[in-house]
Design a protein around this nucleic acid. Structure first.
Lengths: 231, 231
DNA sequence: GTCTATACACAGATAGAC
DNA sequence: GTCTATCTGTGTATAGAC
């Protein structure tokens, strides 16, 4: 799989994503017509990511958001109860989606090494396709209230676990070295996160999304793989 | 070198740091008495880091800062011209210090491998000692105005270069593999950054600062080192 | 050098017309 | 369903007393 193949797969997720955002937040949204909600909610999300990533969510005023979306402030508040509620909607929705897509990576019939490859590639490609959301969510995590913050942390630990489970299984099968897999998983995650956090840097050195995924795989394999002597 | 040894070395930097913060910003600071400035400026910096890291710099009000420092709002404005100026002072000062300490790592007489070790250990230990500043600076970078932002980016690229220069030298001497060193440097940086960005996670898995430095060194060496057959 | 009191701009949010 | 107009709280910043 490379990135251009991945883009086709992602279409399905994008659509289901939009619908879920509506059904999950039906009670906060005062507007009735599904079509209108779908259209405007997406506009609002995109505008929030755009402004939020430029100057930070706290610094974004509702007037900024009004200008960017073309909706009046009165209209905006028909789609969410408060500014904080908008933040929660935006983060929660993406997270659920991301978790699902990572879980779908694991193929019980495949080898741990194959699963590791798929996890890394999917992480890089998905964060490339949804870069603004990933960047926003990473940076604005601390603006969440206690309860939502805990959910965010749980999701992060869960995705670390998906990685470390694969590493542990690989060790049992003799493909990976015996290492502190949880720590390895955390470090792999930091490499993966860098793709959307420091995109400007990789653009500057002309590293494509496929180059990056390949190089991270090499990096991780150098460390984790059992080298078969004589091969 | 381990962390407890490093803590003695760092004392010198802490002191010179405080003095530089004053001389570099003498014109913005209206208060004359050196002693008073030294004491209060440090209080202000610490309070800013504390509140800023909890809720973000934008969300920190000057009233918050007044409560935390015990200084009135009027007094605060004797130490900086505006809230934005406070941000710039805080970031700039730490950056200069960090750059100096990294440059001091490089010992021309030592091998590239030794220099790589020293760079990694110093990065981890220094960011441990000054974690609030590192976290703050990473997260609040986007709140800087264009010019200051450019300086921040230049510093980041410069520290990447220190790493990649060592890798290149090591390749020439036959110790390291031929690899895209700039990319490798960026990835090593992302591992190092994770120590102060996700400290809670490493605390949770009971990884000490020395454990972490060691494991990052192992990880990087697996990838970069030329394996001598028969050793 | 630090305080209190205050200016005044702008934030988030809502009521009620259309 | 969306708009305009407006309420009220809070933000940064400063003037002037001590």
């Amino acid at each position: 799989m490379n990135y251009s193949e991945f883009q086709k797969v992602i279409q399905y997720y994008r659509k289901s994503n939009a619908k879920e955002a509506i059904t999950e937040n039906r009670k906060e949204i005062r507007v009735k017509k599904e079509k209108t909600v779908a259209k405007n909610l997406q506009r609002i999300f995109e505008a929030t990511l755009k402004i939020g990533n430029k100057k930070g969510f706290q610094a974004m005023s509702m007037r900024d958001l009004s200008d960017e979306t073309g909706l009046s402030m009165g209209a905006l508040y028909a789609y969410f109860a408060s500014k904080e509620n908008l933040l929660v909607m935006l983060q929660r929705n993406g997270r659920d989606n991301f978790q699902k897509i990572l879980e779908d990576c694991i193929d019980e019939a495949a080898t741990p090494l194959e699963n590791l490859h798929k996890l890394i590639r999917t992480h890089v490609y998905f964060s490339e396709a949804m870069q603004p959301w990933f960047y926003f969510t990473y940076m604005e995590g601390k603006n969440l209230k206690k309860m939502e913050r805990k959910i965010a942390v749980d999701h992060e630990l869960h995705s670390d676990n998906i990685l470390s489970t694969v590493l542990t299984k690989g060790e049992q099968e003799g493909a990976f070295k015996k290492l502190p897999h949880q720590l390895t998983a955390a470090l792999i995650k930091s490499l993966l996160n860098d793709w959307y956090l420091k995109r400007w840097k990789y653009a500057k050195m002309d590293v494509s999304v496929d180059d990056f995924a390949k190089y991270v795989i090499d990096f991780v394999e150098s460390h984790c793989l059992v080298k078969k002597s004589g091969n």
